[in-house]
Structures are given as C-alpha cells and as structure tokens.
Amino acid sequence: MNNMEKQEYTITLYTENSIGMIGRISTIFSRRKINIESLNTSPSEAEGIHRFTIVINETEEVVRKLCRQIEKQVEVLKAYYNTNDEVIWQEQALYKVPTEVVTEKAPVERLLRQYGASAVVIRNDYTVFETAGHREEIDALTDALAEYNLIEFVRSARIAIIKDSEGFHKKLKEFEETEPAEEVVENRYLNKQDKVFTM
C-alpha cells in the first residue's frame, strides 16, 4: 500500500497530565477536517504521563505531518503512529438483553459463548454481558443480538499496544540518565530527529 492511500492508523500520544489536553489535541484534528474514529486516554506505564490512543482513517503522509504538529504542543512528549498490523488492539462492549431471551432461546446462549461474552449483571428483567475484541467481531455480535430484542449497547474506544516497542517508560529513563530532569519537563529533546525515542 502506498502512502497516498487512506487506511486506519492508531496514533499513540504520551503527554503530561494537564487540563485541556483533549480539547487542544481535538482542535488539531478538526482544523484539518480529520474525523477521529476513536479516542481513549488513560495513565501510561510511566508515572505522571498520560497515553492517548486515537484512531483515524487517513494517508500515511497526512498522519506523519499530523504527528509532527501534535509533538509541537509543549505537553506532548511523543507521538507515534501505527497501522493495525503493527499494534495489538481491542475494544470492549456491553450488551443489555432481556433475561428471558437468554434463558429461553438456545441460539442466544450459543452466540454469547461463540463471542466470549460473559455476564456482568443478571436481573429478572435484563442481563448485561461484556465482551472484548476487534470492531468487526463486536459489530457482528451486535447485529446478531438485534434480532433478540437487544435493549442497549455501548462500545469503548480502542486500546492498543505497539508490537515492536519497549515502551515509553524505558526511553524516558534512558534519557533521564544522560540529561538533567528539567530538560524532560521542558520538552527540548523531543523532536523528530531525536533517535532516543525511536521505537
């Protein structure tokens, strides 16, 4: 695939935990009229550093420029982008179905087993199941359950681990051993030419 063809990319950002980061990052995408398919933020493996996982459908050239632009934000320590083949990823989903459908219809029970869904709440009137997987699997189960009075459905944003990566924490530690800690905070070292953070 050449870099002019659009495909799904997972962008992983490591940022300082500061107020308003989601808004500032979202603005960079909206200014370029790029739709965010999925956005997740959570603590990372490095203390005090947050990790954003963003999914977009774009060309590699656009994604590369976008990551460079994002890295110019003072609080952004590093931006990586990867194709789906280069990450291990999952989405989580919750399904609410009538309990009587689960107990009385064998196909529903088989469906839930097939997709590895497990019950998290069982009540007389409804049961909530959870499952994790790729979007296609989650969508397939949703479509199947729609035939059995699916009451409610919600899917999480993507979470992803980069396959060929030793993690950001190790890179940060390596840098701190060779440079004063203040430099890390000031973000002077995190430009594209810096090989310290190549994963």
Results as ranks from 00 to 15, higher is better:
Val128Pro: 04
Arg24Trp: 02
Met21Pro: 00
Tyr189Pro: 01
Asp194Val: 00
Ala160Thr: 07
Leu13Cys: 04
His169Gly: 03
Phe29Gln: 07
Glu104Val: 00
Ser26Val: 10
Ala140Cys: 05
Leu77Glu: 08
Val101Ser: 13
Ser118Phe: 12
Ala146Glu: 12
Phe175Lys: 01
Glu174Met: 10
Ile56Ala: 10
Lys171His: 06
Val121Asn: 13
Val184Gly: 00
Lys170Arg: 15
Ser44Val: 08
Val87Lys: 10
Val184Met: 13
Ile88Glu: 12
Glu152Asp: 15
Arg123Asp: 15
Glu179Leu: 11
Phe197Gln: 01
Arg123Glu: 15
Gln69Val: 04
Gln92Pro: 00
Arg135Asp: 12
His50Thr: 06
Asn57Gln: 14
Ile159Lys: 09
Lys96Met: 12
Tyr81Asn: 01
Glu91Trp: 01
Val108Ala: 08
Leu111Arg: 01
Asn3Met: 08
Ile159Arg: 11
Ile25Lys: 00
Val102Phe: 14
Thr41Ala: 12
Lys163Ser: 11
Thr27Asn: 12
Tyr9Pro: 04
Ile138Gln: 03
Glu5Trp: 00
Asn2Val: 00
Glu152Ile: 02
Val76Asn: 05
Tyr95Glu: 06
Arg24Pro: 00
Pro43Lys: 09
Ser26Gln: 03
Ala140Gly: 02
Pro43Gln: 11
Asn17Ala: 04
Thr53Phe: 03
Arg188Trp: 11
Leu66Met: 15
Tyr115Ala: 04
Glu186Phe: 02
Met4Leu: 12
Leu111Ala: 13
Phe175Thr: 01
Ile54Arg: 08
Val120Pro: 05
Asn84Ser: 14
Asn187Lys: 06
Arg64Asp: 13
Asn149Tyr: 14
Val74Lys: 06
Ile151Trp: 03
Met21Asp: 02
Leu141Phe: 06
Arg32Asn: 11
Ala146Gln: 14
Thr59Phe: 05
Pro43Arg: 09
Ser156Ala: 09
Lys192Leu: 10
Glu60Phe: 04
Lys105His: 15
Arg64Ser: 12
Gln73Ile: 10
Ala160Asp: 08
Glu183Ala: 11
Gly133Ser: 05
Glu174Arg: 10
Tyr14Asn: 06
Ile11Arg: 03
Ile19Gly: 00
Lys105Gly: 00
Asp164Phe: 10
Lys105Met: 12
Lys170Glu: 13
Met199Ile: 10
Gln90Glu: 14
Leu39Gly: 00
Ile25Cys: 02
Met199Pro: 00
Leu172Pro: 00
Val184Gln: 03
Pro180Gln: 11
Lys173His: 04
Glu104Arg: 10
Glu174Asp: 15
Glu174Phe: 02
Asp143Thr: 07
Glu71His: 01
Val121His: 12
Arg113Glu: 14
Gln92Asp: 03
Asn17Gly: 03
Leu77Gln: 11
Asn124His: 13
Ala119Trp: 04
Lys195Leu: 11
Asp85Leu: 09
Ser38Gly: 06
Val120Asp: 09
Lys163His: 13
Ala157Asn: 13
Val108Asp: 09
His169Tyr: 08
